[in-house]
């Protein structure tokens, strides 16, 4: 059991106690929302767990390293960033996947690019963004987010 797990469980417990003291009805509602979200996300969790197992078990490290490893070229990085932009995985679940990719030979840059575009850019929600905020803003935000994500990823590769 790692410190992070203990920390987050403690934090949630403290928040829950505070919430219960402050407003019991709201807190219960929050718990209900939590339970619902948990159930909703559970199948995806299992999918990702199985995929991680298969990924580490069957895909050779050399292959991952060749596509998105330290020595891999721009194609791999751009491909991973685009994949992150287009996919619609809950970001919570993407962290274990990213961690397993890192374990199996992917570079920090590629992994950072993947999770950053995954969280910042949503192709699925893009039409809605246009509708709510206007075309200019939506295009600018998503376009710049992509560039920024790549910059962050490259800088992380340099720093770490």
């Amino acid at each position: 059991m790692s410190a992070t797990i203990i920390l987050i469980n403690l934090a949630s417990l403290v928040c829950l106690v505070i919430a219960l003291i402050k407003d019991r009805r709201k807190a219960v509602k929050g718990l209900y929302v939590a339970a619902k979200t948990f159930i909703r996300i559970l199948p995806v969790v299992f999918i990702i767990i199985i995929l991680i197992g298969l990924l580490l078990g069957f895909v050779p490290k050399e292959l991952i390293a060749r596509i998105i490893g330290e020595q891999a070229g721009w194609d791999g990085l751009l491909g991973v960033a685009l994949l992150g932009a287009v996919l619609h995985i809950p970001s919570l679940i993407s962290y274990p996947l990213a961690g397993s990719l890192l374990q199996s030979g992917a570079s920090v840059t590629a992994v950072a690019a993947f999770i950053t575009t995954l969280t910042m850019i949503g192709m699925v929600t893009f039409p809605l963004e246009i509708k709510e905020l206007g075309k200019k803003m939506a295009f600018l935000r998503n376009g710049l987010s992509f560039i920024v994500a790549l910059l962050i990823a490259l800088l992380m590769g340099v720093i770490l």
Binding site: N9, S12, G30, L31, V33, A34, A35, T37, F38
Partner: peptide, 9 residues
């Protein structure tokens, strides 16, 4: 579960 509780609250 802890994350979900935090998010829900």
């Amino acid at each position: 579960p802890a994350v979900m509780v935090l998010m829900g609250l």
